[in-house]
Amino acid sequence: MDTMKILFSGVGGQGTLLASRLMGEAAMAAGMDVRVSEVHGMAQRGGVVESTVMLGGLKSPIISTGEADMLVSFEPLETIRALNRCSRNTSIVTNIRPITPITVKLGQAEYPDVDQWIAFIKSNYRRVCAVDADELARQAGTAKAVNVVLLGVLIGLGELPVTAQMMKETIRGKVKPKFVDANLNAFELGISSVSC
């Protein structure tokens, strides 16, 4: 298969690491070589959290300028921040629900205009899917499932060699039993929200 570099970006506490790990587990279960990189330590205290999933025999754990094939972003500001890793060819999945950074709360910086930038992204990148993942997660029964909603959108794009069935198996096997149903709902809602 071709190689695939997937960048996950979000804010500490949003479950980006679990999303990239589930993606990696599903890919491995499907017999693919996979590398997943994670950020631990100080970076997790409310800061930007990035992880990557590299498929198809890639060895490098990180993604350079312009080299992401897919971006899965959990927060619109982080989507904009991650654009330097995207090329025109990148497929972008983004949540549209902002999380206000402390620097904005303290009046030291201004949060960019989300609608304007989503429009910019839609007109400049190959394929863009912008969803309200927080709302979908809430509908699925748990606000925490933003990460699995976005995984649903990612798989729903149909660009990865991992099927919805494989991902559901992985969710069943890796998510705590009492959260499995809500997460499967969230995953389905993610898939069905793909309209790009």
């Binding site: 921040r81 654009l83 620097t103 030291q108």
Partner: peptide, 18 residues
């Protein structure tokens, strides 16, 4: 890789760990 022109990006708010 061919990237769109990002020169009009405003300075983005940082998220320092807190």
């Amino acid at each position: 890789p061919e990237m769109p022109d990002l020169s009009s990006l405003p300075p983005l708010p940082m998220r320092p760990p807190s």
